[in-house]
Amino acid sequence: MPKSPMTGLIYRQDGAFAQFSVSLILQSDGRVRYEVLGEPYSTRHFRPDPATVVHWGRICYHSLRHELFAEVGPVGKRLAYRYAAHIGSLGAKRGAAMHAALRRAGVPDGQHYAAATAALNWPVVSLAVLTPQEAAAVWRTVRAQAQAA
């Protein structure tokens, strides 16, 4: 049986001039649709082309890196991780491997993002969106702290 897609919010932006949201919805007949609400659309349901999905992934990726201000939902996080892997960032698999490496280095599970945030000086909410250079900087900082202890 094929796995049903995760549904829900891709991303939402609330600004002074406009509100905009994109969601993935599973209909009762099993078909998937995308719902776009806000400017320049009132309500729009459509099947996006691949470039549009990549654009949404880019918005989610940059929002997780705190370079844009959008609320990213669970579907948006998956798109961001795919986009991250596509552009050379860690992506989901290498992000998970980094979590495992941090765990082996003695960083408790609940403190991986705090360690990355301290090393990079910006709020890290996902290791998957780090570039290899940023991941290396986090690893150097963690190792230096472990050697100093």
Rank of each mutant, 00 (worst) to 15 (best):
W122Q: 07
R47Q: 12
W139M: 14
A101P: 00
T7N: 02
A148E: 15
P74M: 08
F46W: 10
L90R: 11
L127D: 07
G38A: 13
L120G: 13
S28R: 02
A18N: 09
V22F: 02
V125M: 05
A115W: 08
A146D: 03
A92K: 12
L26S: 12
R94W: 14
E71C: 11
Q19V: 13
P40G: 03
V32Q: 12
T7Q: 12
G73D: 00
T7M: 02
R12G: 05
G106R: 06
T131F: 03
S42R: 10
T7R: 02
L24A: 05
V75T: 01
L90N: 11
A137P: 08
P40L: 09
D14L: 15
Q145S: 08
A92S: 07
Y41F: 15
Q27E: 15
V107G: 05
Q145D: 14
A96M: 15
S28I: 07
L64N: 00
W139S: 02
G95T: 04
G106T: 02
G88K: 12
V138H: 04
K93N: 04
A116F: 06
A146Y: 00
P48A: 03
S89P: 08
P123E: 04
E67G: 14
A16E: 14
A128L: 09
R94K: 13
T52P: 04
D49C: 09
S23N: 09
V129P: 07
